[in-house]
């Protein structure tokens, strides 16, 4: 089923997330990132940071739930059980640290049909409490076509 192309260019209400020392530690431990700047406040400060630094891929913790709200909107027409994550990027404006209260705004950058598969690209712009850019993520999901003959 083709996706609703009117979603392209839309944005959704901002969501706020407070980055914590313990969540950074938990995420860093889960990916084996043992650099002390992820775990030890003093080490992070000695390295020039305000507080412990989140790993590069940490933002998925809040950008994916924000994106998922749109993915699950029945009006979009995407069947999540058939979704494959095809591409992902993150561009960092400044390190994300414990204590940051960030705001995520989700936008749909692109929707296209690729041989019957639905391809949709989400962008999430993340800003800090002062409104300054922190990072931007992009995720492209593919809703695989139903097998021929199924309804």
């Amino acid at each position: 089923m083709p996706l609703d192309a009117s979603f392209v260019g839309r944005t959704w209400p901002a969501e706020t997330y407070e980055v914590s020392l313990e969540k950074i530690r938990e995420f860093a431990a889960a990916i084996g990132a043992d650099d002390p700047v992820h775990h030890d406040r003093d080490a992070a400060r000695q390295a020039g940071h305000r507080d412990v630094v989140a790993p590069t891929t940490f933002p998925v913790v809040f950008t994916w739930p924000a994106t998922r709200r749109v993915v699950d909107d029945p009006a979009l027409g995407l069947d999540f059980t058939r979704v494959v994550h095809r591409d992902q990027s993150v561009e960092v404006s400044r390190p994300l640290c414990a204590g940051d209260v960030v705001t995520s705004v989700v936008a749909v950058d692109d929707i296209r049909d690729l041989a019957g598969n639905d391809v949709i690209t989400f962008r999430v712009d993340v800003t800090d409490a002062d409104g300054a850019a922190v990072l931007t993520t992009r995720a492209t999901l593919v809703g695989r076509a139903e097998p021929a003959g199924s309804s």
Binding site: A47, T56, R86, D87, Q88, V92, R138
Partner: peptide, 13 residues
Amino acid sequence: GDPAAVVAFSTRF
């Protein structure tokens, strides 16, 4: 030598 030096990462799965 510095995780914060990675300012962008993009990939296809």
